[in-house]
Design a protein around this nucleic acid. Sequence first.
DNA 1: TCTCACCTCCCCCAAAAGGTGGAGACGGCA
DNA 2: TGCCGTCTCCACCTTTTGGGGGAGGTGAGA
Lengths: 230, 230
Amino acid sequence: MIRVMVVDDQALVRRGFALVLDNEPDIQVVAEAGTGLTAIAAAREHQPDIILMDIRMPEMDGLEATARILQTEKKAEAGDTPCRVIILTTFDPDEYVFRALRAGASGFVLKDIPPEALVEAVRTVADGGAMLAPGITQRLISQFAQKLGTGRNLAERLERLTAREREVLAAIADGKSNAEIAEALFIGPATVKTHVSSVLSKLGLRDRAQAVVFAYECGLANAGGRDVGF
Amino acid sequence: MIRVMVVDDQALVRRGFALVLDNEPDIQVVAEAGTGLTAIAAAREHQPDIILMDIRMPEMDGLEATARILQTEKKAEAGDTPCRVIILTTFDPDEYVFRALRAGASGFVLKDIPPEALVEAVRTVADGGAMLAPGITQRLISQFAQKLGTGRNLAERLERLTAREREVLAAIADGKSNAEIAEALFIGPATVKTHVSSVLSKLGLRDRAQAVVFAYECGLANAGGRDVGF
DNA sequence: TCTCACCTCCCCCAAAAGGTGGAGACGGCA
DNA sequence: TGCCGTCTCCACCTTTTGGGGGAGGTGAGA
């Protein structure tokens, strides 16, 4: 049985969704909330598997509420219920989508979807998957393809480097100085300089700064992976 | 009427999908192909709206074929049919997915989906959307959220900088030298040094190389956006 | 065996970068 | 009015970086 909570400030809308879902044999609506704040409390109390969350709400919007609920979930992590959130809204501007995904939402669907599709989305997400509105999936793919896109030809340039040189480049992309690289790779500083020089000349770069740019652009260094705690 | 081409090396599978789709009133299977090479030729000849493409095939795999078909499409761009590809396969390893998305696929679904879902996927993609298997959507979101994740707290550190300093940081993240930054911002090289110094000290960085790392990590510079043609 | 690519390290040197301290100009704000 | 933050620039200094050689050692392959 999938336990669902519906969060929307408009009681009618809320009841509508709840009725649609409750009509399914394997889905049970266990709570409803009309604001972000009450949603947080209700989530804690009823421990739903899935939360259908509107964005525009008084007191606290759905994105903020989503972030908080999933954060406390993560802290608890007693393995209770890894509650998952589907954002259900009328609009789909990019900013909302990105914020929602960052907040940890597993779905982002528009309110105009047919009821069966909503039910399907709930089941999909409860099953560990994710469900986005088709247009959003499309944009996500575009963004992703763009990021991977340029990587190709640059990665070819990367192959001109020897294994050691790639290691050095990675270290450069980590913000390390020559001395630090030497220490990290257990070689002398002079050797590091040699490697750095060949990396720069082979790739047609001038600076270690440009080397950092190159590393990020070709995917050798991945943005978002590191804590910049130099 | 949605014109579909089915590409799969197993004739039985191919016929199965074709029959399911042809049974729909708004979908017409206009071509079939058993290899990547013939798929390219058939796509050119029949100009389908949607191509269902298997990955594992003799002569040329589906990903390569997808890339080529969409590439020639792009070149032609006479506005004929902006043909779109749905990858339909038994496996979903990450590598395949990324290659598929980079090749320009608009969908990636597993062969075990129910027939109605396949039909729905075809309609969705024909309608300009995209459709991924739920698990894949999930992973795409994770990757995306990770990239956006750390950006927030770092961006706060960014706000300690003055507007000018942020400009300078952006220029640094572009791989520019102090002299180039001076030229770009119409100020003296000495001024650039001043700004660079305060950027580094305010952000707790040592190097302009570390500054580049910081810029990428906090999203000030976006990987994939630039041509590294130093 | 000889060659070649690679890794390792050295020296010297010029250029760039980064730190420190100071200074004038401008605009907002108490 | 005076204070403060910002932008602009300067001079001086140390450290780092990057380029130009050269040189020894290793292992794979012709």
